[in-house]
Design a protein around this nucleic acid. Structure first.
Lengths: 103, 103
DNA sequence: GACTATACCTAGTGTTTCTAGGTATTACTA
DNA sequence: TAGTAATACCTAGAAACACTAGGTATAGTC
């Protein structure tokens, strides 16, 4: 299913940040775990996506050092949280429409 | 929802061809109707997609003239029908994984 | 006679995922 | 203790594909 994720990665990232802040590497794991292995995002996908989200002020980040390793921790902004709700409802409409055509 | 369809247009087209052959312009309408307006595919999306499907031997086409207008009518091939089943089941796995992450 | 709908075609644009490299630190293990 | 794996980040370029914006042509409507 190449490219199936196109246009949906932002929603995955925002969703994974909904409950608590997380750093990039961690988001990859969260998404892989929650999707039961279906989505194994490349780092080259995640980092640029996070930068775009930050540029759009949907997330904000800060550096943190844990046992010698630097991490950039992201959290949802207020508009990011609003965006998450919108994207989630857009996703549901999209999925429903897909089912309607596909079935 | 820009780009949400990326990677899913083939499935829409194959689905719309499942029950009977159809021409390109007609497929746009079928997909718009079944999706209740959610998917209004541009012709610049549909025609190149159909060519790619034909090149991969998933559909086959023939010209037809109805009241003076030329139409290219597409139908599923055997492997196209097999592909449809595969893509449909891939879509369901994808949608389920999306729900799992998003919820 | 002008306009709309039907029906097709296509070159180029833009966005975004992914590949394939890279750096650096810590933890494990043979 | 040397080597490898895991953690954690970064980025330039490639590839794919939906879409824009133009085009042609016929039939029907006002």
């Amino acid at each position: 299913m190449r490219d199936a994720l196109k246009g949906h990665v932002d929603l995955l990232l925002l969703s994974a940040l909904e409950d608590e802040p997380a750093h990039g590497y961690e988001l990859v794991e969260t998404i892989r775990d929650r999707s039961e292995g279906e989505f194994d995002l490349a780092e080259g996908t995640v980092y640029p996506s996070l930068y775009r989200l930050e540029r759009r002020r949907l997330v904000a980040s800060g550096w943190e050092t844990v046992s010698g390793r630097r991490r950039r921790v992201y959290r949802l902004t207020t508009s990011g949280r609003r965006k998450l709700l919108k994207e989630r409802s857009d996703w549901r409409a999209f999925a429903q429409a897909m089912e309607a055509v596909v079935t």
